[in-house]
Structures are given as structure tokens and as C-alpha cells.
Design a protein around this nucleic acid. Structure first.
Lengths: 144, 144
DNA sequence: ACTAGTAAGTCAGAGAGACTGACCATCGTC
DNA sequence: GACGATGGTCAGTCTCTCTGACTTACTAGT
């Protein structure tokens, strides 16, 4: 019996497990030139494209870091940048074909992992868990 | 309204928030020569000391990485190493005085943050959340 | 219409974190 | 006592992330 662990740490295990599983399956499917850091940025690109600054803010990294990661994603063909029609300074980071394919796979894997977790916890407990985490996000995610 | 987020990502927000808060308060209290990576290792040192290999396994990093971080912690006076009386190859990483002081503060901050979360979610929902996360750990933490 | 301040993004450089691979010392077992 | 396994270290590399300084473009106030 280990001692009582704090809620933040308890949240860390599933979060790490999901990320590891995503990476593992992406690599297995041939998306082997991507890293977790790149994935964290890519996961936040909206359907019509997202500004670099917004990506950085949501991922809680500096613009420079986000820019660096987007450069790599672009070189690997996952995303491309287009000028923002509403703001001459800005550019929108959009998913390219390869990026959309990777995201589609990632969505499938996420659903798969959630199904496994649901099988372990039960439908009702999982629904409660999701509800609690969504409410907790209100006080733990500064960008939402 | 944002779309439904996966459970792994939902777990990420509280985990990141807890870690950020811990670092912030530790720095404010004068423990300003520590990093999150060092903290993640230090948090796993048991009451009688823990082997480097075990620390590495629990934190899911290589022995080299763990060794590097323990070196830094030792230089800063948070931990020290003693020979393992039961195994001539091994050494135990133990908390030093400064390390114990930091851990004591960290425990207080953790309790504080959990109290805030409980205030937001309610007693019952928080208890259910903890129970669900502890069960989820059974399938998401390889070292337990 | 001009100017001052703010916001978007880029360039350069540095430090920390994490890995792979090779290695030595010690333990445990046959 | 020899040999495979385990605990730990050394060396080198790559990625992530930051700070600081800068350019360009938008916006609000006069």
C-alpha cells in the first residue's frame, strides 16, 4: 500500500499514458518523424488554421518555441502557413494533407484508449470522471 | 463551445496546474535553484532512500537522465548519496535537510491546491474523482 | 494623417533535459 | 570460480525551451 498521492500526480499518469500511446501508434503507422512537443502544438490547430501566437498561448510555451516546432512540422509536411486575410502581420498555421491523416489516426487511437479506460472503470464512473475533469479545467486551464 | 476533448488531455490541465503552482511557491520560498525535472525525481525518494535505478524506472527516464538530475540536486544540497548496506554496487539517494524542508512545503501546497479544487467541485465529486483516478492508475502507470 | 503604443512573428544564442551506446564494478547462481 | 544480470557512470548528441533584441503591421488618440 502506497501513501495517498496528490490529485495532480494522479492526473499525470493517464495524461502520460495517453500521450505515450498516441506516439507509439503514430510511429507504428509511419508518422515517425514527429515528437510529442510537435504533437502538442499540432493538436491545437483549429479547422480553419490558427495563429502562431494562439498556439503558443494555448500550449503555454513562448512564441519562439512554437515557431520552432511549427517549422519542423512544416518541413515534415504536416502543416503549412498561409497569410491571415484579416491581419497583414499574421499567418495562419493550417493542417496539410499529411497532418490531417495523422490527426485522423490520433482521433481513432484516443477513442480506443478511452474505450479501454471505460472498460476498466465502468460507463458511469467514466462519465463522472469526464464531468469532473471538465469542471476542473475551468480553474486549471488559463486559456479557456 | 469547444469540441469534446480526450480524457488524456483533460487530465493534463490539472497535472500541469499543480506542477506550476508547486514550482511557483517553492521559488517564492527561496527554493529557487530547483527545476520541475529535478522535482519529479525528488518526489519519488522514499523515507529510507531510493536507488537511482528505481527513481529512473518510476519517473520513466533513463538511468543517465536520473543520475544527471540527482547530481544537480546533490550539488544544491537537497539530497545526498549513501552506500546501500545490502548491495555493494548500489547507492541510496536520500533527502538532506534542505530537501526535507522543500518536501514539507510541497506537501502543504498540494493540500492547499486540493482544497481549492474541492471547493470548486464539491466534496463528493472530488472523492469520486480521486477514486476514479486511483483505479485508472492501475492501467496507466506501469510501475505500480 | 501622424504618432505612440501594442501585437505578430523572426533571428540569435544558450542552457536544460533526455536519449543511445559503451563501459566498469558487483552480485547471484550454477 | 566463471558467467549472466544488475547498479551505476562516462561521452556525445539532439530536442526543447527560454531570454533578449528586432522588424513589420495594426490601432487608437489627437
Amino acid at each position: 500500500m502506497t501513501d495517498r498521492q496528490n490529485l495532480g500526480l494522479l492526473c499525470f499518469y493517464p495524461s502520460r499514458a495517453m500521450e505515450a500511446r498516441l506516439m507509439q501508434e503514430l510511429v507504428a503507422a509511419g508518422f515517425d518523424d514527429i515528437t510529442t512537443a510537435q504533437g502538442r502544438i499540432a493538436a491545437r490547430i483549429g479547422p480553419h488554421g490558427t495563429r502562431l501566437t494562439d498556439l503558443a498561448a494555448q500550449a503555454l510555451v513562448t512564441k519562439q518555441t512554437a515557431n520552432h516546432l511549427v517549422d519542423q512540422l512544416q518541413r515534415a509536411g504536416y502543416v503549412h502557413r498561409v497569410p491571415d486575410p484579416t491581419d497583414g502581420r499574421a499567418r495562419l498555421v493550417q493542417m496539410a494533407e499529411r497532418g490531417r491523416a495523422a490527426v485522423a489516426l490520433a482521433r481513432r487511437v484516443e477513442a480506443e484508449v478511452e474505450a479501454e479506460w471505460t472498460a476498466h472503470l465502468g460507463e458511469e464512473a467514466t462519465a463522472q470522471l469526464r464531468a469532473a475533469l471538465e469542471r476542473l479545467r475551468e480553474v486549471t486551464d488559463p486559456y479557456r
